[in-house]
Design a binder for these strands. Structure first.
Lengths: 93, 93
DNA sequence: CGGGATCCGCGTGGATACTG
DNA sequence: CAGTATCCACGCGGATCCCG
């Protein structure tokens, strides 16, 4: 459970499960997350070995975040949570 | 996700998925949870319609907590989280 | 037995402003 | 673009003491 700590963490992992993604893309994917929190979550995920951070030497600079193999193992659990969430949403209309 | 909020919440739901359970039994099931926190989680779960609280008119008094139908829908998600946790534990231990 | 009352610390998150 | 800095608020959790 500690892996999923943080309200936005499952969301971030879920979007990364679709492939590598840049900081700004994630901000766009999850509109209501603040840069500060996204940054904090990504750092934490990197520390735990769930994502890897790759700096591309371009101009303007871009940074890519990728799920590790371990990170991918968390995806099914997150999906089953999301599935319940969807069910609820549909039920409420 | 808000349904699973609280570090102990998934644990509580998981133990309740095995059938109705009393306050003291849950404390015994989850040794490191404090009475205050268990009480808070159960109240929250009751408020969300995940568990029902039934007071038995016995002496000494006993209170039974039961998962609602809706509560049962959360169990698969919790199980899939637990499964990942087990996998990790085995890998380290 | 099944809690409630109180106190206190920490992590998380939001908003805003700023930077290499 | 991809963050960092600062400030503030709230929820969660631990510990202890108390109650019907």
């Amino acid at each position: 459970m500690s892996m999923l700590r943080g309200a936005w963490t499952p969301n971030v992992i879920w979007y990364l499960s679709g492939g590598p993604r840049r900081f700004g893309e994630l901000r766009h994917d999850i509109p209501r997350i603040s840069a500060r929190v996204l940054s904090a979550r990504l750092k934490e995920l990197e520390r735990r070995g769930i994502v890897t951070r790759t700096v591309m030497a371009t101009s303007p600079p871009s940074v890519e975040y990728t799920l590790t193999g371990f990170g991918h193992e968390l995806v099914p659990a997150i999906n089953s949570i999301a599935r319940v969430g969807m069910k609820l949403k549909n039920r409420l209309g």
